[in-house]
């Protein structure tokens, strides 16, 4: 029993870190725009599909494919700002209009992916050693995927921390997130920082989407609402302002999910996740958005 618990704890934290990564993207977006992008999870889907195209169809090495996929999705983030955010802001569209515009964008992207890649989940073998045997530590079975996720996210967090605390651009971004007007007075180009935060938010989510491939395959499930809402849940648990707390919230959600499957039922796993989210939202202290 203990080995089963440990096993589930490891797998749960790994997938939770990925939810957290999606939540981190949500936080990065919310910090600068004060908006939630409901097409957020589409970036994960786009990242996974593009990565598939680059590796399987163009036969590029996997590491290069990841970088290219993340870059491409970041470019899509720029388009998102140029063609959805900016026109809406110009016409004084409120939050609800932005929600609906991005929701429709996510439907559009889902159908665009169906047109380009087809609706059938694509197999993507050999990724993150998923076809190798898992590691046995006594009775505990650990998937290679979990270790890969841990490694990637550690590297990523160190890089992000370096960017935010040591580089001028990162510091400016944080300044804009705190107070755009004061940042503008300090000579920071707020619009460029906004561009950057769109790119960062979509790029981070694309990375999460690629790392989620062994769990969901390269499928439309990656662009579906349920994972997206889990990402939002992580961001909310992180207080919408603190990126690393979102990662922590993700780990909590991942663990809760895995233990619900272990001890309660797998059919109602997501029901319980959503109930948790509602209760958490209602019990939060300051619930102003």
């Amino acid at each position: 029993m203990l080995s089963l618990v440990i096993q589930n704890a490891v797998a749960g934290s790994a997938i939770g870190l990925l939810y957290g990564l999606i939540g981190l993207g949500v936080v990065l977006f919310f910090q600068t725009t004060n908006l939630m992008n409901f097409a957020h999870i589409s970036s994960a889907m786009l990242g996974a599909y593009l990565c598939y195209t680059y590796t399987v169809m163009w036969k590029l090495p996997f590491a290069l494919a990841i970088v290219m996929a993340v870059m491409s999705v970041a470019l899509y983030g720029l388009l998102l700002k140029r063609f959805v955010y900016a026109p809406l802001a110009k016409r004084k569209g409120g939050r609800l209009e932005f929600i609906i515009a991005t929701l429709m964008l996510s439907v559009f992207l889902l159908n665009a992916v169906i047109v380009v890649w087809g609706g059938v989940p694509l197999p993507f073998q050999g990724l993150f050693g998923s076809d190798r045997f898992p590691i046995f530590l006594g009775n505990v079975v650990i998937q290679y995927h979990s270790l890969f996720v841990l490694a990637y996210i550690t590297v990523f967090v160190i890089a992000l921390q370096y960017f935010f605390t040591r580089t001028m651009t990162g510091k400016s971004l944080r300044a804009v997130a705190q107070n755009p007007r004061a940042a503008r007075l300090m000579g920071i180009n707020v619009d460029r920082m906004l561009n950057l935060s769109f790119m960062l938010s979509t790029g981070v989510t694309a990375l999460a989407g690629i790392l989620l491939i062994p769990v969901y395959f390269v499928s439309l499930d990656l662009g579906s609402g349920i994972i997206g809402v889990k990402g939002f849940a992580c961001a909310v648990m992180g207080g919408m302002k603190r990126p690393y707390q979102a990662l922590l919230g993700g780990v909590l959600i991942g663990l809760a999910e895995n233990f619900v499957v272990l001890f309660v039922s797998s059919t109602y796993r997501d029901v319980i996740t959503f109930l948790f989210l509602i209760i958490f939202l209602v019990l939060r202290k300051q619930a102003e958005a």
């Binding site: 939630m36 939050r95 929600i99 609402g225 349920i226 809402v229 939002f232 849940a233 909310v236 109602y268 997501d270 029901v271 959503f274 109930l275 989210l277 509602i278 939202l281 209602v282 939060r284 619930a287 102003e288 958005a289």
Partner: peptide, 24 residues
């Protein structure tokens, strides 16, 4: 929930509610 939650958070609550009903 709307007594305590508003805006984006309320939309998340209602999304969760919708998903729960759908799964049921």
């Amino acid at each position: 929930p709307s007594f305590k939650v508003s805006g984006f958070y309320l939309s998340l609550v209602t999304i969760s509610f919708g998903n729960i009903v759908w799964m049921l």
